[in-house]
Design a protein around this nucleic acid. Structure first.
Lengths: 211, 211
DNA sequence: AGGCTAGTGACACCCGGTGCCAGGGGGCAA
DNA sequence: TTGCCCCCTGGCACCGGGTGTCACTAGCCT
């Protein structure tokens, strides 16, 4: 299937009939699902944007209007995720230690409903195992780091570009990512537990390694 | 200057005459220098591989034989860097605490000679500020993380895929990167000092943030 | 009806990256 | 010297991600 190709179907803008009251699946959501399925099935690099677009019943050009890059189709609405983290941080108890607040916010923002977990697993498996997606992740993490560094700076009377705020942002985020990896590796573990365990190690300075 | 273009010079394989005893600059080194200069001057994305190749007096095709990707031209011989870190870790005193050994190895592997610092600065400024290079960096860091995680696992009787080894690898590396950022931001600071300061904060669990 | 806007598809183009083949030069043996 | 081999190189066509532009259509408002 080459670059210029006749669409073979008259663009089904909505898939089937939505239950009354439930909004019909948006085009964006449909593309996300098609992308995730294809990428999981055959690998991120092995699937072309042409194929994803085709599977979702839109043109390649339209795909790139919904998602700036091929990788973005995997990330869902990550901006909203970051915004929620920012809100959680803004609403923390000022009497609680800074570092503890950051960790708690991370745990809470990643407290997904049970029904969302399979999707999250699929997403994260792709992101952490596909080199192209792993690379892209750094750009997304940078958004998170900025938010956390700003919070730490505000609370500790520093500026977001000082060493400690940056350091807290970078290391807590690294810990969260590692917790995700551990969660993916162990089918039966709870994401929240992995996060708490990772943060405990981090904030205590890895007590088991003093030898 | 389009894709197919007549080379306008008869490939100067060596730049001028090398001082006796000193090996002539290799083609690879010449390409690296050309790439770094052009990227610094006009931005990574704004320079095409065609232009870099042209500036180095080789063809585009040959450029991609020296470097797998455009980004790799910025990273010098990073593999050797990782190998050296691995050797340093292998040669650590078994009586010293694990975490301390990792940090010390990081400091030592980044102990550059004064003459190398300007080049290092240029490289790191690009890597940390150009989105495409920042993304690529994650792939390189993964190599480092594997080495560190394996070391920590060996020393602490765990496996490299356990939480703590991964966690130490991820957080020390995040700290090192943050120290690099701080070093770049402050013209007059020493890289080693920034690294030590970052590791001190990390290993003590950010003592200033208990509030 | 007429006009505005938002979403879409087609198409051409740019650029990073790759497979393939055709030289070309240097070393080595006869 | 001649012939052979091998490595480095350049040219070229191709793939695929990403973008600018234009034309078309469906609504929607007046």
């Amino acid at each position: 299937m080459g670059r210029g190709w006749a669409r073979h179907n008259a663009a089904v803008t909505v898939t089937g009939t939505a239950p009354p009251g439930v909004p019909a699946e948006t085009t964006r959501a449909r593309v996300e699902r098609a992308a995730l399925d294809l990428f999981t099935l055959r690998g991120f690099e092995q699937v072309t944007t042409d194929e994803v677009a085709d599977a979702a019943g839109i043109s390649r050009r339209t795909f790139f209007r919904y998602f700036a890059t091929k990788a973005d189709a995997v990330w869902g609405d990550f901006g909203a995720h970051v915004a929620r983290l920012e809100e959680l941080l803004a609403g923390t108890d000022p009497g609680r230690p800074v570092l503890e607040s950051v960790c708690a916010a991370y745990v809470e923002v990643n407290d997904y409903a049970g029904t969302e977990l399979p999707l999250l697993r699929e997403r994260m498996l792709l992101i952490l195992n596909e080199p192209a997606l792993l690379a892209h992740s750094q750009l997304r993490y940078a958004e998170v780091d900025r938010v956390v560094a700003r919070y730490v700076a505000d609370r500790s009377g520093a500026t977001p570009s000082d060493l400690v705020p940056r350091l807290v942002a970078a290391t807590t985020r690294a810990s969260a990512t590692t917790a995700f990896e551990a969660w993916l590796a162990d089918e039966h573990s709870a994401l929240g537990d992995q996060l708490r365990q990772a943060f405990t190690e981090l904030t205590r300075g890895f007590p088991g390694l003093v030898h």
